[in-house]
Design a protein around this nucleic acid. Structure first.
Lengths: 233, 233
DNA sequence: CAGTGGTCTAGACCACAGG
DNA sequence: CTGTGGTCTAGACCACTGG
């Protein structure tokens, strides 16, 4: 049984993947415990643990103390998306980045915004609207609210040349956030700004960013028609 | 220096996060090496490694041999999406799942499909169109192509009661895939099936699944207006 | 070439939860 | 209560890569 072929966790993982894939270990099946696998593979239990833990993180295995390790019966596809700064996205594709500030105002937001950001309905927020361009063509429309009580330094920024998207990521820390992807129909105003037909289907990212229970910023990004967000599984 | 507070990798990670967050280690900064941190925290280097590796995987740190570990200067937001079986998605929200097969045929696909799936232009594929419902309301429209040379058992499935979405995940292994999210305008046909206005903005998932360089299936999922895909950061 | 992260090992103790 | 995964340790060697 002592198989000298598996000397590192990657090779162990590869072999485990092979067995799952070949249905030697079918979905839902209990696989041998770490100690047994370590003996079979001729390596330390730590190494087996590393391989299996990694597979569990990607959703292929289901591990529970005492219950052991099972092949996931419904293999969830876990996609990892990297949401970068818009400028970086554009430049990575070799296009020229452009930026235009449309509006900047400090106002009391609609109830829907103050509620989502958990601020008093009477509190003033900084409202920014801006357009991102790729090779001089409209790329994305940014509509953002910033909590200037939490980020007072934002009040001094004009955001005329640096987008709020970029400035915030570089200057303001956050602890966690929520993000939602959806599709929205372009309003007349939006379609004019993005230079597309009215009612075009726009890929949309809504994002709410928190710093320890205080909302930092809420942003809605509307991408020009045709935009895709891609990743591998 | 020997601080007895940090006994496990989670607490080490938490402290590192605190320092990043408090800008004690600003973006781009080189942080102490593992051995030094281990001494400071009073734990083994392995434990520090575990904490830092995990942060690097989530994009907060940038690690390179010899060069050391740096705080990411452009913290990429890395969102993890779980793409489950549609039925599971609906039932998890306490709704009743429904399924209707619209069309099932074995035909030679359009060039765009055969090219994407890297099959001969003359090869017949299984084409499935189906509707998923939540509480009897249209939820998503599935348009799928299956490579019956790779999955011959699919040719014997009627897909009248079990969706291809679910059947494939349970019966057909795959090694990797590509996924893309976008927004599309509903065609007249689509809008009738989904019972929504024509030209509605539909959230779209395109997915191509491979088994070792052979395409298994290509699917386009069009979700009814209002659908959101959510996750946390 | 030398410093850094990447990994392996053997052994140990612990936390959790199934039976 | 007991088996399983989760983790820590100390020490070691290795792989990569910056200077």
């Amino acid at each position: 049984m002592n198989n000298p072929t598996f000397r590192n966790w990657q090779s162990v993982q590869k072999e485990v993947l092979r067995r799952i894939h070949a249905r030697e270990w079918p979905p839902g099946e209990l696989i041998p415990n770490e100690a047994d696998l370590a003996q079979e593979f001729g390596c330390a239990r730590t190494t087996v643990n590393r391989a299996l833990r990694s597979l569990a993180e990607s959703g292929l295995l289901d591990r529970r103390r005492k219950a052991g390790t099972r092949v996931a019966s419904q293999p969830v596809a876990r996609a990892t998306l990297d949401i970068a700064i818009i400028r970086a996205d554009i430049e990575d594709r070799g296009q020229k980045y452009g930026y235009q500030l449309i509006e900047r105002e400090e106002v009391i937001p609609p109830i829907s915004i103050s509620a989502a950001m958990a601020v008093e309905t009477t509190q003033t927020l900084l409202h920014i609207r801006a357009l991102h361009l790729a090779d001089d063509v409209p790329y994305a429309l940014e509509d953002r609210w910033i909590n200037i009580q939490i980020v007072p330094s934002a009040a001094a920024e004009s955001f005329k040349t640096v987008s709020a998207n970029e400035w915030l990521l570089a200057h303001v820390p956050y602890t966690h956030g929520e993000i939602a992807f959806s599709a929205n129909s372009a309003t007349q105003n939006q379609s004019m700004t993005l230079n597309c037909p009215e009612h075009s289907a726009l890929f949309t990212i809504d994002r709410l960013t928190w710093d320890n229970d205080a909302a930092v910023t809420k942003v809605c990004l509307l991408f020009a028609p045709g935009h895709q967000l891609r990743t591998v599984l």
